[in-house]
Structure formats: structure tokens, C-alpha cells
Amino acid sequence: MIRKRRLSDLIESSLEEIEKEMEQAIQEIREWRPMWNASKGTLEPLTQIEDTGDKIIITTDLPYVKKENIDLKVCDNSLEIDATLEQCVKYEDWVNVSEECEFKSFYKDIKLSEKIIPEETNAKFTNGILTVELVKRKGKRRIKVD
């Protein structure tokens, strides 16, 4: 059976779609920020965060970085990565910054969604990819069911 849609329904659904698209656009504007900080000379690395249940595994792509130049700081709800580049990266014809720009390191401060045990953190650096394994704090208590 073909049902005719009322004009008011059509307007309503179109408005909903427009509203949804606008929300997405606003969200993108809110989330967007450059992956560099010219005044500090830092670049933001690409990072992936995986929750495996009992652990949070964070991998980071760090080109131009040697293992000994990676500085990691961890506390119960954040991980800070500071990695000095082997050579400074210069952008000479870049108009987004007023002067010649030079980047010296990668920097990222990652806020964790759950509390972890800093002392149990493991990190390894393989072929330019840093992998940090953070063990979640077990805050749950087993309850006996009567």
C-alpha cells in the first residue's frame, strides 16, 4: 500500500536531516585543531588507542625518532609522550605561520578514560612505532550472590 506523506512530515524529516548535518559540522569544528604547535616547535603524532578489557594499549607513529630520545610520563589517568626528532623539520614556504617554522619534537598528552596502575606500564619501540601497555586499576569487587 502506498501511503502519501504529509507535507508537514516531509518538512520535519528534512529539518531533522539538516539539524543532524549541522550538529556533525559543529562537532568537527569543535574537535578540529592543528597537529602542530609552532610556538613550542612540537608536532602531534598519530595515535591509536585500544581497550582490551584489562589493558589500554596505545600505539604512536614516531618517524625521525630514536628510542633513547623518547620521554614517557605516566600517572593514573594520563600518558605524556615527548619525543625529540633526530633532525629538526623546517617548513620554509608555509603561510600558516608568519616566520620560518622549525619543529623539534613530537608531543602528546593523552587523557585516559579509566584509571591505570602506572608501575605496571610497559613500553616498546619497534620500527618507528611506540607501543605502551597500561594495566587498568581493578576497582571492582566480587560480590557473592545468595
Partner: peptide, 11 residues
Amino acid sequence: QAEEIRLKTRE
């Protein structure tokens, strides 16, 4: 040029 490509294609 692998490291340079990795760095410059992040965005």
C-alpha cells in the same frame, strides 16, 4: 624518504 613521508602525511 620513508620517515619524511610518514611525518608529512600525518594530517
